[in-house]
Design a protein around this nucleic acid. Structure first.
Lengths: 171, 171
DNA sequence: CCGAACATGTAACCTGTTACATGATTAC
DNA sequence: GTAATCATGTAACAGGTTACATGTTCGG
């Protein structure tokens, strides 16, 4: 297994979405990405359809024949797809990577701000963090329990950032 | 201000790197990205040189004349560059975004694993997390205090993940 | 002198973005 | 009927990736 290239993060997320919802169309996958709270991607057709085409060519996704006169195709994972998803999701090295974190890129610079600007900036960030947290907590109910886990982690992350601001800038 | 397009994350990081080290060459910026612990980018020439060209064309970066016979150019920020960096770094909405988090994308799937596989997976992830933490703590000394802040945040994140594994999978 | 590190860039490729084109189905 | 939503795709573009091409400087 895993002789072919590894899956990208988006491809793994697409396989996850298809595998944990029966009879998903490509359109439904795109919509799920759009509505997702952990919005790392736009869920645009220009990303989703080519990704699904790639995964289909690699034999990881199967497309059912059109149900009705409609052009819709229901998607599901082949056994190879299920295996590839397992390999992707269990890649501990990748899971542990830091990812692209906009907060971490900027936080060091706030230190260098003159005191007045810095206090204003920290207050603005705290406000934004609280707003995000409130939104996450309110909207958490809309999602299934796979997404729940992601949302709980997102909440933990935002709380960590709030705590970190208090500790790192305690004057 | 901010009438032109916003900076990308990489462009902001490039400006940061140039601004907080006097007389940096493009090559030195690339090397700093390569050696950085928060390795969101490869620091490849194919990313750095075009980015610096873009930023120069926008009037944010100034290039000194060649010092010696060498083709090296020292880079520095124009006032417009300093302003653009301030705008980028103080964008609270963006700072508070979740970014692309490989851990969050996968964690939900670990829940669905059969008990034996799940325990093995969690142990593998814990091991990888501890290894990352050890490396971050050991290598923290190599960097200046701008990078220190990023490293401290990275350490906090990995510790959060460890704690979260214990709490979320407490059986 | 020679290899390592410094230094600048380009080319082919991949995969994301937005915006567009096209059409079927459903609710009113 | 018609507007909203479902549904599938493509085109132009942006900005990353690796790999390559080219040349300089410095330590031994």
């Amino acid at each position: 297994m895993a002789k072919g290239d590894d899956l990208t993060e988006l491809e793994g997320a697409v396989l996850t979405e298809i595998h944990h919802h029966g009879n998903h169309t490509a359109f439904a996958v795109a919509r799920a990405f759009q509505r997702s709270m952990s919005a790392e991607w736009s869920g645009s057709a220009g990303a989703i359809y080519p990704a699904i085409t790639r995964l289909t060519k690699r034999g990881l996704i199967m497309r059912s024949e059109a149900r009705t006169g409609r052009k819709t195709r229901d998607l599901s994972l082949s056994q190879a797809g299920i295996d590839a998803l397992a390999v992707w999701s269990c890649d501990a090295e990748r899971a542990v990577g830091l990812g692209l974190d906009p907060f971490r890129l900027r936080a060091g610079l706030w230190r260098r701000l003159p005191a007045v600007r810095r206090d204003a900036q920290l207050e603005a960030v705290r406000t934004a963090l609280r707003a995000r947290l409130a939104e996450l907590e309110v909207r958490a109910g809309e999602f299934d329990d796979l997404e729940q886990t992601a949302i709980q982690l997102a909440i933990s992350l935002e709380r960590l950032r709030l705590r970190w601001l208090d500790e790192a800038f305690a004057s």
